[in-house]
Design a protein around this nucleic acid. Structure first.
Lengths: 202, 202
DNA sequence: GGCAATATTAACCATTTGGTTAAAATTCGT
DNA sequence: ACGAATTTTAACCAAATGGTTAATATTGCC
């Protein structure tokens, strides 16, 4: 019938775990605290997710693959660079705002175990190649200045990801709220592509 | 009497602790591991630094605060925006390349305990205000387009910090080495200010 | 209703961990 | 050389923590 936010125990656990993990990090999270936050017994955590590592991956890995799959795919429908940049930045910000802990999680996991997420990264390989080709083509048509395509991609990723990673810093500096942060991110859907395109337009 | 890198025990501890803390974070760091890395007994750690929290602060004050103090200070000698951007980006990249784990470490600690590092952030408050003023002035003089100064600062920080935070990802994607990464960062001392200034110049 | 499968809990357990203590080694002024 | 102060260590300890077990409650099926 109507999928009314099915309140299964497993979902309650995942929700609670995500909250605690993003706040305290893998090492700083206590299984007991997750259990409390989910309103269940600690043993039940191990019943649903065998151990801490699996719980951690259960929380982030799935959504990471889903979200970033969509983000990269947003490129596939674009056949010139500027719309591609707009599409990518828009998709990134819109998806990640729904799960703002993802970028920091990914940075940490990559740092701790580079091989572990290699497959995940390679997933975007095709779209990445496509993006680089779009840059070359735009360059050939004289639409943009001479710039290293890989460096451009790094800059785009930087402008997308950093506000999420530095969120607590921004929150402190600008005394920003949850809702204020959201507005800032959504505003960046326009300003970031503009910022980039102004910089590279021939 | 050349000050030949006085190898006092306290310095060995601080050095070892800095390395472990930045790699594993506050919660993930084990006092035993720091002791081992410093080649001393664990009890000696508590002899020099009463507890984990004080050790953490001791390391942090000597390392992160000094580095970022210099980076922010690089602004003080500039009296117009574009040179200020060049100085800031240059100082950031040159200093942080010597301790590439720092940005991710800071992002994590800010996320875990926002209050704990609040004082550290406020340290840069003066320079931050100065930067914002330089932006206003440049805009008043018609040197740059109309842009939210705070958003500009976020973008600058993003372009500086992100390569360090995403290093393992870049390493995997571009098959980059330690030395290659260093070269890329040093090249960005030029390309990043250029990228920014092209985007904001009126 | 009854019974097998699933979900949930309280009580435990082994290990890890931050921190202490008391004794041994070293340094240093005299 | 000697004794006091400082530095260093080995052995401990109590609390916290990830994880297990065995028993209980609940659900779903006939």
């Amino acid at each position: 019938m109507a999928p009314v936010k099915e309140e299964t125990t497993e979902l309650r656990i995942l929700e609670a775990a995500r909250e605690v993990f993003t706040r305290k990090g893998m090492a700083g999270t206590r299984m007991q605290e997750v259990a409390d936050a989910a309103g269940i017994n600690k043993a039940l955590l191990h019943y649903y997710f065998r151990d801490k590592q699996r719980l951690f991956e259960g929380v982030f890995k799935g959504s990471a693959e889903k979200q970033f799959g969509c983000i990269w795919d947003s490129l596939q429908q674009c056949d010139s660079l500027f719309p591609a940049i707009e599409a990518f930045v828009g998709a990134y910000l819109e998806r990640v705002i729904e799960e703002p802990g993802l970028p920091l999680f990914l940075a940490n996991e990559m740092s701790r175990d580079p091989e572990g997420l290699a497959a995940f990264i390679d997933r975007g390989q095709g779209s990445r190649a496509r993006f680089l080709k779009l840059v070359e083509e735009a360059r050939a048509r004289g639409e943009i200045i001479d710039i290293d395509p890989r460096e451009l991609l790094v800059n785009i990723m930087a402008l997308c990801a950093h506000p999420f990673i530095a969120r607590p810093m921004l929150a402190h500096i600008h005394g920003i709220t949850e809702e204020g942060f959201r507005r800032m991110i959504l505003k960046r859907r326009k300003t970031v592509p503009e910022f980039i395109i102004r910089s590279i337009r021939a």
